[in-house]
Design a binder for these strands. Structure first.
Lengths: 347, 347
DNA sequence: ACGAGCAACGACAACGTTGTCAAGCATCTG
DNA sequence: CAGATGCTTGACAACGTTGTCGTTGCTCGT
């Protein structure tokens, strides 16, 4: 017994396949009585329309593609979760693909989704700066970028610069003059924006930006324990940390705990699980993945209906969650003597 | 300019569409020179085979379906991540669908995947006990259950009973006689198995199982703060906790912290982020989602190739991560007298 | 009563791909 | 050299669905 198609339904209800198609697609030109007969047969046979045939005919299928760094990252997982939930109400499925931050793989995945699966839309966290190969599809497949800005597409982001400014300003206001920028990862435009805010706030406060206080991810990896040790071994070590993303925040918290320096001032960009249970509780810039995911899918659905429109940037608000670690004042410092100059600070 | 199909490639390289198809599918019966001409044209045109047409023809498509409770759950997120990574190497995409633990929605999602999208296989965490509607597809679509056992399908699980036994035994060995079973959620067969192990270990040790020490999830929700408060308000409160899943573990840790009782003995089933940074670090039964996901996808790939075979259960090993919280001994207790009795305890 | 107009429905092609079958061609066998 | 064999290739149908267009039968206005 093969699975029933539109044909079997037609036979069972004594109408043509076209009429079944009409009923399934909710077209109006069907007599109520006929419609009822067809629905009955559908029910009885357990008919489910074949998505493949549908998208073959219509040129665009019943799924949307989501391309992200990795699902193992809780931020992206929640993002996709929000998207999937909303997509379900629209009768759309979600195809996930991960890039592992590799531009080639990003290309491969996006092409597979757009050209292969003919997705009804793409939501993605861009890795490469430009995606020329996507051009031929622009007219037919709506695309929304998330988390990272993109000149060419609609994008849903948070105001990295403003949020970081508030956080760093708070640390400066507490007397910190040695603030580490923990994990500057050149691969992400968002982090570069956060770094710029860090720089600007320090400069505005007359505090020199010390390259020694900047931690770098090189070749995609940063050994948090080693890096934290390096920072504390400096002749003039940091009194506060700004973690540029939640992974770095977790790494920092962990490495601080390992060396028994839990009680260090820090703020992380991006909330993480249990941040409020640690002692001290970790102050975070809350960048809500559900909010971002929702905004992205809503925008995508709009784009599906609308004709073409100019790419826009959609900014999702953030909050600074003041939990404790970001409210620790700088320690009193004795006046320093020689070359390194007087950097007394306090309260 | 339409997107190029097999037809355009055929024209460009001066062969028939069938030969292009042969090249694309890596069939051998093509002269190297012809093959080269075709590959050239494919390259030049940026041809990508249309998945919809393919699965329409073959009756089974280039994606596998993964159906889980929610992607927002880090356990499932990592699980799907492992699956997606492996699927990519096989040229398969991943369709995710969440159930929200609703059996009806599970049905809807699975049918959409199997009948609608004609997925090449299904990996799912079963909600309902039985899935009769899946029967007609059994012959053509391989199915693997994860995390929760299922009689009808191959399933990848951990040995809940054994792992729980070890954990509870450890607590008993440390002198605990009042061990709470934190979050008995009837909806999950895994949790019921863990509960049985808890019961059996206590009984074997001659410790009565006190219903007051069992926390229940009712209607899918448990207020962790209230529940923790209730337990400590008992005339004879627990001295140790067994959290039956990581969500409960996180909830427990959080609520303990809120009332300043961090220093309570506990073991959680399921590791979670930062468990090793908390003070005390939280002892967990590590149920590695990557291991489970990998086992599931490997099994699925096997089933795709193989003819039918008897459903089997695949048990993935777990480890008890002894980090501190599970190694806290019971407080000394004065000898107990009569019935209602004095049960004061304390250091 | 008669044609116009409309609502309901059906026949057929087409979407892009692969499976079936057969044809073309060169090489080998006796 | 005829026929057999093997390798490479192509024509055509089919997968399940929807769009196009045509057909049928009814209602309405005159």
């Amino acid at each position: 017994m093969r699975r029933p198609g539109i044909k079997e339904v037609a036979e069972q209800s004594g109408v043509s396949i076209k009429t079944v198609s009409r009923v399934v697609n909710g077209e109006t030109a069907v007599r109520p009585e006929t419609r009822h007969r067809v629905l009955d047969a559908i029910q009885r046979l357990g008919y489910v329309p074949n998505t493949a045939a549908r998208s073959l005919k219509s040129g665009t299928g019943g799924a949307i593609g989501v391309v992200i760094d990795s699902l193992a990252d809780p931020f992206f997982a929640s993002l996709v979760s929000a998207i999937e939930t909303r997509a379900l109400t629209e009768g759309l499925s979600v195809l996930v693909a991960s890039t592992g931050l590799d531009a080639d793989r990003e290309r491969e995945q996006i092409l597979s989704l757009v050209a292969g699966h003919q997705v009804a839309g793409i939501i993605f966290a861009p890795v490469a700066e430009e995606l020329p190969y996507l051009e031929p599809f622009r007219k037919v497949t709506p695309v929304v970028a998330v988390d990272r800005a993109s000149a060419a597409f609609d994008s849903v982001v948070v105001d990295d610069y403003a949020a970081t400014s508030v956080a760093v300003q708070q640390l400066v206001g507490l007397g910190h003059e040695r603030i580490a920028f923990y994990d500057r990862d050149e691969r992400f435009s968002t982090i570069l924006r956060r770094y710029r805010a860090y720089q600007d706030v320090l400069e505005a406060a007359g505090i020199p930006v010390d390259p020694d206080l900047v931690s770098w991810t090189v070749d995609g990896a940063l050994d948090y324990s080693a890096e934290t040790a390096r920072l504390f071994a400096l002749s003039d070590p940091p009194t506060a940390f700004f973690a540029s993303n939640s992974k770095a925040g977790i790494g920092l918290v962990t490495s601080l705990a390992h060396i028994g320096r839990e009680n260090t001032a820090m703020i992380a960009f991006g909330d993480f699980s249990l941040a409020d249970v640690l002692r001290p509780a970790v102050s975070c810039i809350d960048q809500d993945p559900f909010l971002i995911g929702n905004a992205a899918i809503e925008r995508l659905l709009e784009l599906r209906a609308l004709p073409v429109s100019e790419p826009r940037e959609w900014v999702v608000p953030t909050t600074l969650l003041r939990r404790g670690s970001g409210e620790i004042p700088a320690p009193l410092r004795p006046a320093v003597s020689a070359v390194g100059s007087t950097r007394g600070g306090a309260l």
